[in-house]
Simulated assay, not measured.
Amino acid sequence: MRKIIAAALAAAFVFGGCSAELPQQSSETSQPCATTAENTQERYVPLNYKNQVGMWLPYVRFPDYMQSRSEEQFRKEVVEILEDAAAEGVNTVYFHAHPMGDAYYRSVIFPKGEFLDGSYDPLAIVVDEAHKRDISVHAWINPLRLQTDEQMRALPEDYIIKKWIAAGEPFVKNVNGRWYLDPAYPETRQLLTETAAEILDGYKVDGLHIDDYFYPTADTDFDSEAFAESGESDLAQWRMDNVSSFVKALYDTVKSRDERLLFGISPQANISADYDSQFADVRRWAGEQGFCDYIVPQIYFGFNNENSPFLTVLQQWEDLARDSGVSLVIGLAPYKLGREDKWAGKAAELEWINDPDIISKQIAAVKESSADGYALYY
């Protein structure tokens, strides 16, 4: 990962400047950009930046530096990742604390993640080491995605999801062998807010972050019973309202702990697909206050993509977030460097192979846009 970070960010623009509208410090002295607590016994003061340079730390990479590692080894790996990231200007990490009905933190609600085979607390270590380097930590959760059938069978019987399944509750649904929460029910929204509260109350995280796992299918059978009982006539709008309801609930949970904590959403960048396949009302979230503090569309497209060219999609998101008070952070895809892009159209299939400077060029384009920052997915 260190080599990837260096290659992706070498000669790249790094957003400068200090945090905007910083809270008042608890002491007369303060750092020029980051906000920190003077007295660790007092209320934690979140560390956040107006111009994010973000980096996702996804669970799919956990086998590389967590699985089969001791606490000491894991901490060493995290230090190397964070130091390399900080050296290249990264000021915010989104750590995958809750990828699929599991926990890479101390939880009384969810079972331990399968890649965590030690007894240490990954989130606590990441928060500790990141804050030493003035890096903000946002706990990243997938709100609706749960375990597969096979994984579920191996879990304890007292796991709340397994109890719901055994009781035939409609709150969880199986789609192609994987379980998902159904956002139509207050019980699932309550579980999501309890998940957020467990993390926010247990750790000095600086925010909460969700990505693009909303409705797992557009199939009308997924929630036909709940829709019939709702009395509504527009299925798509009803589903969008269900998603916005739990998004709002998460935002409110974050703000109930501290107004200075941030809540961010990272949807897919194709706006039509957000609505048609996931029922994610991104125009509302990006255009109105009260749903998120920042939004990170995953613009994982090259400049020559035949269906979604980078600059066109960037402009679409600028238009959505303009004058809304919601910060726009552009998600970029250095993981695609050196790979064929089969979905980009024939003329653009080899763009990520032929142009090794594509990420640097995209960061430069973000600098010229109205966006407040960018985030990198390796």
Rank of each mutant, 00 (worst) to 15 (best):
G207Q: 05
D149P: 04
T36D: 08
Y185D: 07
H138D: 05
R43D: 09
D212P: 12
N142E: 15
H209S: 08
N242L: 01
R75D: 05
V93H: 08
I330K: 11
V93C: 07
R61I: 04
V329W: 02
P122N: 03
Y59P: 03
K361N: 06
N39L: 05
T40H: 15
L82R: 10
D128V: 03
I295C: 09
E72F: 10
Q298W: 04
F303H: 10
V127F: 03
M240V: 01
N304K: 15
E77W: 05
V366P: 12
H131M: 01
Y377V: 14
R133S: 09
R189L: 05
L123S: 06
A286Q: 05
V78D: 04
A184I: 04
L192T: 08
F246N: 06
C33R: 06
A344S: 15
L191G: 07
G331Q: 08
V247S: 07
L181C: 01
E83C: 03
S119E: 14
N176T: 01
Q52T: 13
T29N: 07
D149Y: 07
K76W: 03
L144I: 02
F246V: 03
F246E: 03
N242R: 11
A347Y: 04
E80G: 08
A280M: 14
Q362D: 02
D134N: 15
P309L: 00
G207S: 07
R189E: 13
D276S: 13
A348Q: 08
G118V: 02
E229K: 15
P297V: 01
D219P: 00
S136N: 08
G118K: 06
A236H: 12
K132L: 08
F227A: 04
A249V: 07
Q52M: 12
S136D: 03
S68I: 00
K163P: 09
F115Q: 13
E259S: 12
L82Q: 10
I353K: 15
L116R: 13
W285H: 13
A87D: 15
Q41W: 14
A371H: 11
Q190N: 13
R106T: 13
A249Q: 05
Y59T: 10
S266N: 09
F115K: 12
T92L: 10
